[in-house]
Structures are given as structure tokens and as C-alpha cells.
């Protein structure tokens, strides 16, 4: 890849976690006055909200000459069920990776309950449960071993780990396959065992990147129940998804992100402004094609 190319005019997308997608939808409308490749905040952002679970200010990440996240400000209220939606390659995964300590931001701050995350990542990570997207698991362990491993890595007590592992396996319908190697799991089972590894230490905040991908409807409903009761008990959940319908039903807050920027954020009702979330999303992100193009694609 040569570095000689001019900086991209439209905001690019590069997702280090996702498999290389040949070409994602390119958002058509550049926002007026957007910075060209370097952070130039037009108005000083408000200071981080100490009461928010996450308070993100001016977050930037570039990979080579592609800007994956271009100045994100976001407040996730404590105790909210927050959905992050956006097209493929919008920067969802990159943003969540920087918020959870998997990727160091170029610029910007992440505060968790008022404490700066990147100045003491270890303290921050203790409060977080993370389900990253597109990473392998230690798949030569059995499901039970993997969840136990996650618990012990967090420095938890052996008996507590054993008890919670059994609970999680039951709740996520994995008990029958507890002794099967994760490498032999289906995609949905793999997702569930990764979710269990993120839950084992009862974190204050859960960050789940595409938690429902490949998960069957019954398990998805079970997971939604688990997450809803977790939020009712005071926990905060951040999920990314591109299933609008799911987010509209499940979440109380939502942020729409495209090409590394937040296009809209707030409670679900504020964001959708009377329309359905999906219509609002398509409206904001753009890029719908008319179906006239493939005239020859007719079954006659």
C-alpha cells in the first residue's frame, strides 16, 4: 500500500477486526466543514460527564491514510441499554475497541464513570466486560475451560468461577456442550461462549460487538432477557448491531455512526423522531440504490 495517495476526501472506513471487505457503501454526503485528516474541533466539546458510564471526547483513529474514527463525542448514561448502529465499515468496532482498551486511540479521551480510561487501563478493564467481534478464541479449550479461564485471568476465586461458569452454561443453553472443544462449536455457540466469558466477573459495563450474529432466535431471546435484567439491576450495556429492528425494540438509547462520525445520538425516541429507526438510519446514512439497475435479473 503506497503512502503517496492524496488524503481521502470522503471519510474512509477500515475495520481491523472485520475480514477485509472489498468495498463497503461509501457515504455520499460529506458533512460541511469536516476536518481533512487531522483533528480540528470547531467548537470545544463539553467536558466529560462524570456520571456517564462512558464519556468519549474527540476520539480519532487512523490506519495508514484511512481515518476509521474521526472525532467521536459520545455519552453513554449509566444504566442505559445503548445501541450503536451503522453501516459496514462505519467505525463501530474501531470505536468500541478504543473504548475497551483493545486499541490505543490517536487522539481523544475515554472516561469510565468519570475516570480517564487510558491513563489506567487496568482499573478501567476491571469494570468492563467485553465481547470483541472478529477475534479468535482460545478454541482448543472446552467451553467450560474457556469461561473458567476468563474468570481466573480476572483474578477471581476458584469456587466463585466454578459456580458462575455452571450458571452461565445453563443460562446460555451450552450445558450439554460444556465439555466440547470450542473449535468444534458452531458460530452461534462460539458467540455465546464468548459472551459468557465477558459476563463471568459481573462487570459494571458490558460492551458487546455484534452479540447476536449467527445466534439462533431462541438463544437470542434468552440473551436479551439476561441483558434486560442486567440493565434493570443498574448495569450498562453497549451493543453494536446493524439490525435496526432489534435495536429499536431492545435499547433505550441509540447512536447512529457512519464513516467514523456520530450522525445522531440520544434516546431511541429522540433519534427516530417519529419514523422507524430503519427509515431514519437510511435517511441519515444515505446510499440507497434504486432497484432498476439489474434489468436482466428476472426469472422469466
Amino acid at each position: 500500500m503506497s503512502a503517496q495517495q492524496p488524503p481521502p476526501s470522503g471519510p474512509p472506513r477500515l475495520d481491523p477486526f472485520a475480514p477485509p471487505a472489498p468495498d463497503a457503501l461509501r457515504p455520499p454526503r460529506p458533512v460541511a466543514g469536516q476536518p481533512q485528516g487531522a483533528p480540528q474541533p470547531t467548537a470545544p466539546p463539553p467536558p466529560p460527564d462524570p456520571n456517564a458510564a462512558f464519556s468519549i471526547r474527540g476520539l480519532w483513529k487512523r490506519f495508514g491514510d484511512k481515518t476509521a474514527v474521526a472525532g467521536v463525542d459520545l455519552d453513554v448514561p449509566s444504566g442505559s441499554f445503548y445501541g450503536i448502529v451503522g453501516p459496514n465499515g462505519a467505525g463501530k468496532t474501531t470505536m468500541l475497541s478504543m473504548a475497551t482498551g483493545l486499541l490505543r486511540p490517536d487522539f481523544g479521551t475515554v472516561s469510565i464513570h468519570g475516570a480517564d480510561f487510558w491513563s489506567d487501563p487496568v482499573a478501567g478493564k476491571r469494570r468492563l466486560g467485553v465481547l470483541p467481534d472478529g477475534v479468535r478464541l482460545f478454541d482448543r479449550l472446552t467451553g467450560e475451560q474457556l469461561i473458567t479461564y476468563a474468570g481466573l485471568l480476572r483474578g477471581m476465586d476458584r469456587d466463585v468461577v466454578a459456580e458462575r461458569t455452571a450458571d452461565l452454561l445453563r443460562a446460555l443453553d451450552l450445558a450439554a456442550d460444556a465439555k466440547t472443544l470450542v473449535v468444534d462449536y458452531s458460530a452461534g455457540m462460539t458467540k455465546k461462549v464468548a459472551l459468557a466469558s465477558a459476563l463471568i466477573h459481573a462487570p459494571a459495563i458490558l460492551v458487546l460487538d455484534e452479540p447476536f450474529e449467527a445466534v439462533d432466535p431462541v438463544s437470542a431471546a434468552n440473551i436479551r432477557d439476561i441483558l434486560a435484567s442486567y440493565v434493570r439491576s443498574g448495569g450498562t450495556v453497549v451493543v453494536s448491531s446493524h439490525v435496526m429492528d432489534l435495536v429499536q425494540r431492545m435499547c433505550d438509547h441509540v447512536a447512529i455512526i457512519a464513516s467514523g462520525r456520530i450522525l445522531a445520538a440520544g434516546t431511541v425516541d429522540e433519534v427516530r423522531a417519529g419514523a422507524s429507526l430503519e427509515d431514519r438510519f437510511v435517511d441519515l446514512v444515505g446510499g440507497r440504490q434504486s432497484a432498476e439497475g439489474l434489468a436482466w435479473l428476472r426469472s422469466s
Binding site: Q145, T148, Y149, L152
Partner: peptide, 24 residues
């Protein structure tokens, strides 16, 4: 399918992060 009984090495190493890494 690969199956395994019990927790294997995770039962035998100390229940600390270092012990868990060793068991893995």
C-alpha cells in the same frame, strides 16, 4: 468432536491469573 473430562489442567494449577495462563 473433541471432548474432555473435567477442567483438566485448570483444576491442577493454582487459581491465580498466572496459574490460569500456565493451565491454558
Amino acid at each position: 468432536k473433541g471432548r474432555s473430562k473435567g477442567l483438566g489442567w485448570f483444576d491442577r494449577t493454582p487459581a491465580t491469573p498466572a496459574g490460569a495462563v500456565a493451565a491454558r
